[in-house]
Every structure is written in structure tokens, then in C-alpha cells.
Amino acid sequence: MQEKNKTVIKSMNLLNLFRTYPTLTLQEMVKQSGMPKTSVHRMINSLEEMGFLQKRHDGAYELGVVFLELGQLVSDRLDLRQVAFPIMEALRNQVEEAVHLTVRDGDEAIYIEKLDTLHPVRLFTKVGRRAPLYAGACQRVILSFLPEQEQTAYLERVELIPLADGTITDKLLLKERISETQQTGVAISHSELENNTTAIAAPIYDHSGTIVAGISIAGPDIRVTEERLSTLKVTLKNAAKSISKQLGWLAT
């Protein structure tokens, strides 16, 4: 293995300080990095010249716009399905139930990826299927973690139409389920889109901490029982966190 370039490593250590501090003076960078002032000054000049740092009018430094440009390139080129698929496949193989990935489209969520259970009894879901945000775990987990203003506006305008025996049609009950999801980090549904089914879903976040998708485990309620849900909850949340991290999310 080739020896790492020490100058590059030290420069990255300087830049990493800006993960915690929005602005830093030369003296603050020296103190936080523990490097000699002459070395820090030299690196700052180079980083500023390349656009990685920019000097403010008060003499402090902040990250340069090149990071915004590079970040947008990464975001544009990152395919959620491509990132999620291997993690979804591992999850399906572990729990042996169907795994779904949904994203928001207006007042609905659309299934953009699905891995079927290996059991002969399966759910009726397919890529491209739509469902309202209020019905089903994978949809409601997205609703639960929307910005408060968007969530409130949705709840005011939506009409809760029954789709299966367990569909929530009372707005007070829906608000209770949303609150539970926010507290536990998962949404659970029973026969909300299809009778005799149970699903559990967790949120997926992007680099900005914004929810971008929901991932769920779903199956017939004779297999996805209350006894299994506690174990599935941990497994699912770990999978959702893995996908989120690959999208740039920094878990708090």
C-alpha cells in the first residue's frame, strides 16, 4: 500500500474542522488542529486558491462554494435505488419477507423498488404502485417525518378513504399514529392497504437530514406477528440507517 500523502491528510484535517465550526480564524484553526501556525497558514493559502476555503470580510474563513458544486454533483449522480438495492436484498434474505422502497409524489407515495418474499404466499405490490400517504406503514413513515408545515397542510386537506379493513379513517387516530412513529422511529400498519397483512417501515434521510424515502418489511399477518415486530424493528432501522449514511446523512 502506498504511503498516504501527509500534506493532503493535514489539509483534510483542517477542512474537517468546518463540520463543527461554520467559520474559523487562522488562530482558531491552529488551536483546534494542533499544527504549527506556519503550516496552517500555508495550507489555508492553497485551499483558498483552489476554492475550498474563502475568506470573509471579518478575516475568518468558511468553506468555499466548490463544496456546494461538488455536493450537487454527488447528489445528482446518486441513485437511491442503486444505493438501497443491496441493503434491501440483504434485509429480505435475513427476514424472508417482502421489502419495499417508496418515495413521496405529492400526496401519495410510489413504490420504486420491491423484493419479494421467498415464501409462496405473497403480497400484491409492484414497482409503480401508488398509495396515499395516510395508508400503510411505508407511506405513513414518510408523512410522519415531513416538515411540520407540510404535514399540517396535508392533514387539513386530505380525505381519509378506506382501502382495506384496517385503513385509518379518523384524523385524530391518524395524528396519534404519526406521533407514535415520531417517537419510536418506525410506522406499523395492519391491513391498511390489503387485508390480513402487517408492515413495519422506517425513514431514509439524505445528506441534509430530509426524509427522502421509506423502507418497509411486509407480509401476511400470520407470519409478521406481534412477537416478530420487536426484532424486525431493530433490523429494519439498521438497514434504513445504512442507506441514509450512504446518501450522506450524519446520524445524530
Rank of each mutant, 00 (worst) to 15 (best):
E97C: 08
E49F: 15
H57F: 13
L47N: 01
K4S: 14
K37V: 09
S179R: 13
N5G: 04
R129A: 11
W249K: 04
S230F: 14
V95T: 07
D116C: 07
V127L: 00
L193N: 09
E48I: 07
D165R: 12
I142L: 08
S189L: 01
I204E: 02
G209K: 12
Y21C: 08
A98E: 15
S242W: 11
R177I: 01
R129C: 13
G71R: 01
A202H: 06
S144I: 05
Y21L: 07
V83R: 02
N93C: 07
S11T: 07
T102Q: 12
P22Q: 09
L115V: 08
S75N: 14
Q32L: 14
S191L: 05
L70A: 15
T167C: 03
K114H: 13
P203H: 04
A164K: 02
L14W: 00
T23V: 14
R81M: 10
I168M: 03
P132W: 03
L101H: 05
P86H: 06
V127C: 00
G214K: 05
D165M: 11
F124C: 12
Y134H: 13
G64I: 03
R42P: 07
E48S: 12
I9P: 00
N45D: 08
L250F: 11
C138H: 15
H190W: 08
A202P: 01
G219P: 06
P120Y: 05
E62N: 04
R77F: 11
K114Q: 06
E156S: 11
R223F: 15
T181C: 04
L174I: 00
Y21K: 14
F85M: 15
L63G: 03
L26K: 12
V158G: 04
H100N: 13
M35E: 02
L160S: 03
T210G: 11
S46N: 11
A90Q: 15
A135S: 08
Q94L: 15
E176N: 14
E227S: 13
D206C: 10
V186R: 06
V99Y: 06
R92W: 05
Q149G: 10
L17T: 06
T252Y: 15
Q54I: 09
E3L: 13
G51A: 01
V8N: 10
L123Q: 00
E62L: 02
A202E: 00
G128F: 01
E180C: 02
L146H: 04
R122W: 14
S39F: 05
G136Y: 01
G248I: 00
P132F: 02
K6Q: 13
V99P: 00
T231S: 15
Q2W: 12
Q27I: 11
L143K: 10
W249T: 03
E156P: 09
V8I: 11
V127R: 06
D170C: 01
L247N: 03
H41I: 09
E48P: 06
R19E: 15
G214A: 05
E148F: 13
A199L: 08
Q72R: 15
L63Q: 10
S46I: 11
Y154I: 01
S179V: 09
V127A: 06
Q182D: 00
F67N: 07
G209D: 07
T167D: 03
A202Q: 02
P162S: 00
R56L: 14
D206E: 00
Y134I: 04
A199S: 14
G136M: 04
E159I: 09
V234S: 13
E159A: 11
Y61I: 08
